[in-house]
C-alpha cells in the first residue's frame, strides 16, 4: 500500500483509535543527510503518526526564520531533491506504514521535471506532496503528473479561504487538507486554539477529507488543544529549532528533536477519544 492509500489507511486506523494524528515536520538534510535520516527513522517510535519532510529551497517565501535557517543548513550540507528521494528510500527500507509527505516549493519540481518527479517519488515511497507556492490555479500540470502515480496532491486552506475558495481548493486533492491556522509564515504567530475548531469543521465539510492543522503550534498545550478538534496536528518549527539549539550547544541534536517530538505526541494522544470526527 502506498501513496494516498497509505494516508487513508493511517487516518482510518487513527479514527478507530479515536484520536488525532501527530505529524512531525523536519527538513531533509538538516543538519546533514545522515543525522536527518537518523531523526526521521526514529520519529515513528517517538510518536509521529505521519511525517512531513521538507525539501530545501533557497527562497522559501512562506517560512519564518526557524525553517528558513533549517533550509539553509540543509543546502549548506549539500542536500538536493535527489538526495531527499534517497532519504525516503532508505527510510522505507525499515518502515512501510508511516506516511511521508514531501513539502516544498515549485521551482525544484519544475527543474526535476514534474512527470519524472512524480514517478520517482512514488517509487521510493512518498505518499503525498505539498507545494507551498502552487495554488490550484497553477496546479493542473502537477496534478496530472501525480494522478498517474497515486501520490496525493495535498492542498492548503487558510484563514483567508471563504466557502467559494474552499470549493476550488478541494478539487483534485487527496489524502488530507492542510489547514494553515494563522495568516502568516511558519513558526511565528501562535494558533488561536479557540477559533480553530470552527475553521476545521468548515474545511472538513467542504473537502470531505481529514484536516491537519499547522503553522502556529509549538507547545504540548497547543498541540493538545488542536488535537481535540482536528484530525492531525502538525509541528515543524519547534522541532527544527531543537536542531539549531543542539548545534549551538554542541549537544546531540537527534535526541533533542526526539524528546520534543515525544512530548508533543503524548499531548496529542492524551486527548480526543470521542470528540474527533472524520
Amino acid at each position: 500500500m502506498a501513496g494516498a492509500g497509505r494516508l487513508q489507511a493511517r487516518f482510518a486506523a487513527l479514527k478507530a483509535e479515536g484520536r488525532a494524528a501527530f505529524v512531525a515536520y523536519i527538513m531533509a538534510g538538516d543538519p546533514d543527510t545522515e543525522t536527518a535520516l537518523e531523526i526521521l527513522s526514529a520519529l515513528p517510535a517517538a510518536g509521529a503518526d505521519l511525517i512531513e519532510l521538507g525539501f530545501p529551497f533557497s527562497d522559501p517565501m512562506a517560512e519564518g526564520p526557524p525553517i528558513q535557517r533549517s533550509a539553509q543548513r540543509a543546502l549548506a550540507a549539500g542536500m538536493t531533491l535527489n538526495g531527499v528521494l534517497e532519504t525516503v528510500r532508505r527510510f522505507r527500507e525499515r518502515d512501510q506504514t508511516t506516511p511521508i509527505v514531501l513539502m516544498g516549493y515549485m521551482n525544484l519540481l519544475l527543474t526535476y521535471g514534474l512527470v519524472a518527479f512524480a514517478a520517482d517519488a512514488a517509487e521510493v515511497g512518498v505518499d503525498g506532496l505539498i507545494v507551498v507556492d502552487c495554488p490550484p490555479e497553477e496546479a493542473d500540470p502537477l496534478a496530472d503528473a501525480l494522478d498517474r502515480t497515486g501520490v496525493a496532491l495535498i492542498r492548503l486552506a487558510t484563514p483567508t479561504s471563504d466557502d467559494a475558495r474552499l470549493a476550488v481548493i478541494a478539487r483534485r486533492t487527496a489524502g488530507f487538507i492542510y489547514y494553515v491556522s494563522v495568516a502568516g509564515v511558519t513558526g511565528v504567530k501562535a494558533v488561536d486554539t479557540a477559533g480553530v475548531g470552527l475553521a476545521v469543521e468548515r474545511v472538513r465539510k467542504a473537502a470531505g477529507l481529514p484536516v491537519a492543522v499547522g503553522f502556529g503550534i509549538r507547545t504540548p498545550e497547543q498541540a493538545a488543544a488542536v488535537a481535540r478538534v482536528a484530525d492531525a496536528v502538525v509541528v515543524g518549527s519547534a522541532l527544527v529549532d531543537e536542531i539549531a539549539a543542539g548545534l549551538a550547544a554542541n549537544e546531540n541534536v537527534t535526541s533533542r528533536v526526539l524528546e520534543t517530538a515525544r512530548r508533543l505526541a503524548q499531548a496529542v494522544r492524551s486527548v480526543g477519544q470521542a470528540t474527533v470526527q472524520a
Partner: peptide
C-alpha cells in the same frame, strides 16, 4: 507569468 503564491495570498 501566472500566480505562484501561497494559498493565504490567493484570495487577495
Amino acid at each position: 507569468g501566472g500566480r505562484y503564491v501561497p494559498e493565504t495570498l490567493m484570495p487577495l
